[in-house]
Amino acid sequence: MLVSIIVPVIGDVGKLRTVLKAARRIKKEDIEIIVVDGTIGGKAKHIAKGRDIKVIYQSILRYPGKGIAMRDGYYFSEGDLIVYLDSDTEKADPNNIRELYRPILDGAADVVKAGLSRRFLEIEEMVKKHIEKLYPGLASIKHPLSPYTACKRKVLTNISWEPGWGADIALLLDAHRAGFRILEVDLDLKEKSSKKQPPHRVYREQIIEIMEAVLKRAREDGKIGVEEANKILEEAGAVA
C-alpha cells in the first residue's frame, strides 16, 4: 500500500525540514511525500529540493488557503492512504507519524485524527461544545481541529473542501456524515507550550471560518436554522 504524506506549507516553512526528515525515515511502507508550497516565492520548494520529494505550488495563493493546499496535495497524490501533517510539527519522528495511520492499516478505522494544537485550544473548546450537540457521534473526539489526519483515499472523494482554516473540521465532519469510521489517537506531535496565540484579529478570523464550516453543514443536515446559526456565529466572533 502506498502512503502519501502531504505537508501543506502556508505562510512560512516552520519546521518543514524536520518533518520531511522524519517522514523519509519511515521504511515499513512505500511512502510518497508531497509538499504543497503556499509560501510567497516558493520557499518550501528550496527545502524539499533534491530529497526525492514531490512539490506542487498551491494553486491559489490566498492566505490562509489551508484547504486549497490540502486539496491540491490530495489531487497530486497517488496513495491509497493519505496523511496530512503540519509543517510546524516540532516533535515529528517516524514512529509518531506511523502511529497516526497504523489504525487504518490494521483495519480499525477509515479516518484517524491526532495531536494537539495549542493555537486552537480555546476555539477547540467552543467547537467541541457545538459538535457534541450537532453531531453527537463525534463527541469523543478530543481534538477535532488537529491538523494531523490520516485517511483512506476514498474518504476524500466525499469532502466538500473549505478553502481556509475550516478545512480540517470540514474533513472530519464530512467523513462522519458519509459514514466513515473515525478514531483518535493520542500522539504528542507538537510542543504544547510553544505556540503563541495569534493576534486578536487573526484569531477571530480563524474562529469565524471554522464555525462557518461547522454551521454550514449543520444547516445542510437540517440540524439548525439560519437564525440560530447566525446567533452562534455572532457569539463566536464576540468570544474571540
Binding site: D72, G73, Y74, F76
Partner: peptide, 9 residues
C-alpha cells in the same frame, strides 16, 4: 479547474 494539481493530473 481551480486546482493546478488536478489540472496537471
Amino acid at each position: 479547474s481551480d486546482s493546478d494539481a488536478l489540472n496537471i493530473k
